[in-house]
Amino acid sequence: MANADKTIVIAGAGSIGCYAGGCLALAGHRVILLARPRIEAALRQGGLRVSDLQGRDRSIKPDALVVTADAAVALPQADVILVTVKSGATEDVTTLIKTHARPDAVVVSLQNGVDNTDRLRAGLSGRTVLAGMVPFNVVQSPDGELPLRVHRASDGKVMIEDAGLVSLLGVEGFSVEAHGEMKAVLWGKLLMNLNNALVALSGLPLATELADRRWRLILAGQIDEALKAMKASGIEPARIAGLRPALLPKVLRLPDWLFKLLARRMLAIDPQARSSMWDDLQRGRPTEIDDLQGAILRLAEQAGTPAPMVKRITALVREAEASKRGSPGLMPGQVTASADGRRSG
């Protein structure tokens, strides 16, 4: 089947899913967005607006979109399924794909975390399931704003482990390249994703938070703990933003003026962009903390390496989740305070 004839289903049309699906639809591909009822209603009413850091700002009218909340309608039509649900929904989407999708449909995980592809493969035995990685941040417009807007707020190429899909999925605004070591890529991305929790706890825009050395010191501490656990486990993460992982904590600990000078690529972010974990707290939804910091804690426990900073931040995010009051707006000193109120070293 020629690429132009393939139907792409976005399984989990939230921020990343709507952005990917929007770019693919604008490029002329047949795309079906499988979305929550809230997103489905917004798209049917106002269509979709897709914008990015480079200044593109494109719209798709409601009648040009194919969107449904019914997996039994969307998945049987799929030649390629891009899984963009949060990690906590991986088992649910696996069941839906197994029940409704054709056995020859190719499944690509574009999720955070390091083990979603393995979980999909475990539940979809005999099917083609590929790992992927989305390096950029996508911001969704507030509830009620129409058309629903998804804005790519940082840069980078999507990576997938199969070169055969690059020509299908690589379109304007959504660059894709093949990579042969996706496990290393996912562990590398996880190191930077440890910052998602700091944005969620502070409530600050990502660029503002990263420009403040006090927050970067906390991120560097987490990455140090993660790298020790990875080394003890024989895991070699891929480069992040062009840097060897071992250098990342050193760069993060630089004075603000020097960091801004040397880490321009890391700071090339829309000024208002925050993390998906912040968005989850604001909306009262479960976060991906168990698949980000949680993955490091599990690895550290198995390896016998300490991870007190990662453990502390995990606990704070779980407290914020339980309170359902959105971001707690913490200061760096509140994050680094130990349980008895003293500052940790």
Rank of each mutant, 00 (worst) to 15 (best):
V80A: 03
D57L: 06
R49G: 10
P76T: 08
A71L: 08
L75S: 07
T84E: 11
L82P: 15
V83I: 12
G55W: 12
V80S: 03
V67C: 09
L65F: 08
D52R: 10
L82G: 09
D52I: 09
Q45N: 07
V83K: 13
A78F: 00
K61S: 15
V73G: 02
K86T: 12
D79E: 02
S87A: 14
A71M: 10
R49K: 09
R56M: 12
G55T: 08
L82Y: 14
A72R: 14
V80F: 01
L48R: 12
D52P: 09
P76R: 13
R49H: 14
R49F: 08
L75K: 11
G46A: 14
G47H: 04
L65Q: 09
A64Q: 15
R56D: 03
R58S: 10
V67E: 06
S59E: 13
L53K: 05
V66W: 13
V50S: 03
T84L: 01
K86W: 00
V80R: 06
S59P: 01
K86V: 00
L53W: 06
A69E: 09
P76D: 03
I81L: 02
I60P: 14
L48H: 12
D70F: 02
A78H: 05
V85Y: 01
A72D: 13
S51N: 04
G88P: 14
V67I: 05
V66R: 15
R56E: 02
A64M: 11
P62H: 13
D63T: 11
V73P: 05
A72C: 11
Q54N: 05
V80I: 11
S59G: 09
I60R: 15
V50F: 03
A69T: 05
A72S: 15
R56K: 05
L75D: 06
P62R: 07
T68C: 02
K61N: 07
V85W: 02
R58A: 12
A71E: 12
A74V: 05
I60G: 14
G55V: 10
D70I: 08
T68G: 06
G55P: 01
L48M: 11
L65I: 08
V50N: 07
G88Y: 04
